[in-house]
Write a protein that binds this DNA or RNA. Structure first.
Length: 294
DNA sequence: CACTTGACCTGTCCGC
DNA sequence: TGCGGACAGGTCAAGT
């Protein structure tokens, strides 16, 4: 569920909280949570300090003074929660202020810092991961070589967007929006929201989109992503930011998880269907399927 | 090659 | 109340 706005929100929080802190210890539950540990951990993670926290697509990068970086993917249920208090490592009951920010059975990786603070990587469904790699090698990973441009970048134009969508002209538009090699960072929530905004039915083939629709979708996508960042992301159930706070974008969602409710634009009842293997929400009046004839 | 579907996991919800 | 099954969705491997 963490998509671009949620990962961006986590990044902003961690960039404020982590730089300058020095790693003193790391724990992880399972090698799959930290695939290349412990080979490089003692040499390049312990005693290294955090230089910067950045984001590319849905991936977080924690750059270390050792010339290595932690690469983190939250997938659907991942959380990265910072806690400045070391008290939870002792016995006894958690204090009220720590509720929701404590390690639990979903905690996969714990980083401890020399000042007593810690960072928990929690992931209920275990799809996420943390890796430790030389910073210089990150851009050589297949994912980073293939991933598309950042949709909110100042130099990303609607013409570039159109041209990249057209690389998959025979696919439905929803599947293409979800394709990370076309545009980075879009997941199920913002695909549905942006298609509603542009009044495009999700099964419309890219080749059937008129020029005005490319521009409308470009604008709609950037608007919903920016609005969600402004609201701290979407919290359906597990997502929280670096300090354990939920985001409020779902309050502003127009169709996502609003089946049975009235379309904010025309009042027609929003429906839920299945497109590209995903639950898909749309207004059947505003978003008409493209007719292949006529 | 272009495109679609299934696997990876666990918690939750729904019907019986 | 318990239990089976569907569902949630990001990404990659496997299938068509």
């Amino acid at each position: 569920m963490p998509e671009l706005p949620e990962v961006e929100t986590v990044k902003v929080g961690l960039q404020r909280l982590l730089p300058g802190r020095t790693v003193s210890a790391v724990q992880f539950d399972n090698p799959k949570s930290f695939p290349n540990a412990p080979a490089d951990v003692s040499e390049f993670l312990i005693q290294a300090s955090v230089v910067a926290v950045t984001r590319r697509a849905k991936v977080l990068l924690i750059e270390l003074s050792s010339k290595y970086s932690l690469i983190i993917h939250l997938k659907m249920t991942g959380q990265l929660v910072f806690n400045s208090d070391s008290a939870h490592f002792g016995a006894g009951h958690p204090s009220a202020s720590l509720v929701g920010r404590l390690p639990d059975k979903s905690t996969r990786v714990t980083l401890q810092f020399t000042d007593g603070s810690s960072l928990f990587f929690n992931d209920q469904r275990k799809f996420g991961w943390v890796r430790l790699l030389p910073t210089a090698e990150i851009l050589q990973l297949d994912f980073f070589k293939k991933v598309g441009p950042e949709p909110l970048a100042a130099d990303f134009t609607w013409q570039q967007f159109r041209d990249r969508l057209l690389r998959r002209k025979n696919s439905n538009i929803k599947a293409v929006l979800l394709d990370q090699t076309v545009v980075a960072g879009v997941g199920n929530i913002y695909a549905d929201e942006s298609l509603w905004g542009a009044k495009i039915h999700p099964t419309t083939l890219v080749r059937d989109l008129g020029p005005a629709k490319f521009k409308a979708l470009y604008t709609s996508l950037r608007d919903v992503l920016q609005l969600s960042i402004d609201k701290g992301g979407s919290s359906n159930h597990t997502y929280v930011d670096a300090e354990g706070n939920k985001g409020s974008y779902m309050t502003f969602a127009n169709v996502f998880r609003r089946e049975g409710q009235a379309c904010p634009r025309c009042g027609t009842t929003i429906i839920k269907t299945r497109v590209a293997g995903r639950g898909t929400h749309l207004c059947p009046h505003c978003q008409k399927p493209k007719r292949t004839t006529g």
